[in-house]
Design a protein around this nucleic acid. Structure first.
Lengths: 134, 134
DNA sequence: TATTGTTATACTCTATAACTATA
DNA sequence: TATAGTTATAGAGTATAACAATA
């Protein structure tokens, strides 16, 4: 394949990767944002303000996001014990199971996407991408 | 940096790249989708149905998208001469100027993002990413 | 009949501003 | 006063279904 140049190559790759994730999410009636929400909650039980910071959203946006995920039984709000103003958002078992399914499927999509590269090239790509984001 | 593995590395990289594009777009009051719309129109004057196919949206969604871009003077609908049902969507001069600014700024962002890699590594990354999307 | 495009409707996602309750 | 969170409101983005006009 012709080299697209670093800008177009990374731009197109990012669209492909995001499209794959969005498509897998959509199969489970999730948007990209909902998947990000569930993903963040896999190893944390943040408050609404922390969640807003991590997701790069206004806290009022997160209210609706958590409302809708909660209505589907994927997350729950737990009252904080130290601060009576605060809540902690956590994954339900169902939410955890769902995010694990989506991640497994998405992982397979990415693997397929890079399957034309040799294993050594895949390691090189992984290492370079890791350095860029690290 | 620790190697994240190919899935997480590409996922995180794609979020970074998309976030950079969205941020640059937002500086000009554009969404990611509006930027994609303008980008598609740089070298084409498609009909609404073609536009829907390229963007992966329903044609009714494209109606609103083009309406809003048109209200800002970025695109225009031109009646097709062959088919009296059809329109052709084209960039206005203002739309073209705007998309060129955003692309230049975004290109600089990507360049900064990979600036910790050596030139040789950047070429390697560009080549591998190009092969994946090609 | 099939295709091109719009309209009506409903829902998600998002931000700003105003609000309540607690610190 | 400051912080945690919600509510009210408005607008963008999206899809489905129904529609009009043309092919």
């Amino acid at each position: 394949m012709t080299d697209l140049g670093i800008v177009d190559a990374l731009a197109q790759l990012s669209f492909r990767v995001q499209a794959a994730l969005a498509a897998r999410a959509a199969e489970h009636d999730l948007s990209l944002v909902q998947v990000r929400l569930l993903g963040v909650l896999r190893d944390r039980t943040p408050g609404m303000a922390q969640l807003a910071a991590v997701l790069g959203l206004d806290k009022s946006s997160v209210t609706g996001l958590v409302d809708r995920a909660g209505a589907r039984g994927l997350v729950s709000r737990v009252a904080s014990e130290e601060d009576r103003r605060a809540v902690q958002v956590r994954l339900t078992d169902r939410g955890r199971a769902l995010v694990e399914v989506v991640e497994r499927e998405f992982g397979a999509d990415v693997a397929a996407m890079v399957s034309e590269l040799t294993p050594a090239q895949q390691r090189t790509l992984s290492g370079l991408a890791s350095r860029v984001v690290g």
